[in-house]
């Protein structure tokens, strides 16, 4: 199981990363990455939903009628997303005011349904749970990396705290907090990841 778990995490975080390999969940990756704190809450929501959805779909895989499996998956995903939405609204209302619309959109995040359909519906609960966590983490790592760069370049802050002497050495690029900034960063991250993969393929 140890090796299997390691393999699942390696696939979810690097080799099959939802963002730069599977190109899933791009909409929210573009929308919430201009401030790191918003991104962290979004990542929490996605990890929670991918993990529990994969586990639930796997537990029910032998009982879900094949013809309506996608409807059932949507029902499961929507329930968990509503729970996340309610919890964030109750515990962090100020952040919910900003990311609320995007939290609701986790329901349509392709990563969750993609993993439920491709992995959880065909595997046992524990590997499915780990796959959900791994994919959520793979999504989150890329989002956090993009958010750190966008917030620093766009606002000169990190988690809302100004960087030391930022006005002296940096003039904020407004475009980095606007949608084009997200496209630039996503393209750069994908470029780096794909170049690295190609080098590794060539070496092997």
């Amino acid at each position: 199981m140890g090796n299997d778990a390691k393999k699942i995490f390696k696939l979810g975080i690097i080799a099959d990363n939802p963002i730069f390999r599977q190109v899933l969940g791009i909409c929210s990756a573009l929308a919430v990455t201009n401030l790191l704190v918003n991104t962290l809450f979004m990542c929490f929501g996605v990890i929670f939903t991918t993990t529990l959805t994969s586990l639930t779909v796997s537990l029910l895989r032998n009982y879900i009628p094949q013809r309506i499996r996608m409807i059932v998956q949507v029902l499961i995903i929507a329930s968990y997303v509503m729970m996340v939405d309610i919890v964030i609204r109750a515990t962090a209302p100020d952040i919910h005011r900003f990311i609320g619309p995007y939290v609701g959109l986790i329901i349509t995040n392709c990563i969750i349904m993609g993993r439920a359909e491709a992995f959880a519906s065909q595997n046992r609960p524990l590997p499915s749970l780990l796959d959900g966590i791994a994919c959520g983490l793979g999504y989150s790592i890329v989002l956090v990396a993009i958010a750190v760069v966008r917030e620093i370049m766009g606002f000169g802050t990190i988690l809302g705290y100004p960087l030391p002497g930022v006005d002296i050495w940096w003039h904020q690029w407004t475009i980095m907090v606007m949608p084009p900034g997200a496209f630039f960063m996503l393209a750069i991250v994908t470029w780096i990841a794909r170049s690295r993969d190609r080098e590794e393929d060539a070496a092997s």
């Binding site: 009982y63 879900i64 009628p65 094949q66 013809r67 309506i68 409807i71 059932v72 029902l75 499961i76 929507a78 329930s79 509503m82 729970m83 309610i86 919890v87």
Partner: peptide, 25 residues
């Protein structure tokens, strides 16, 4: 699992269970 009654029954139970979960939270 292909019968209409099974499918309807499954959806009803799933809706009740997950709806209850959301309501509790």
């Amino acid at each position: 699992k292909k019968s209409a009654w099974y499918i309807i029954g499954f959806m009803v139970v799933a809706c009740v269970v997950f709806g209850t979960g959301v309501s509790v939270v």
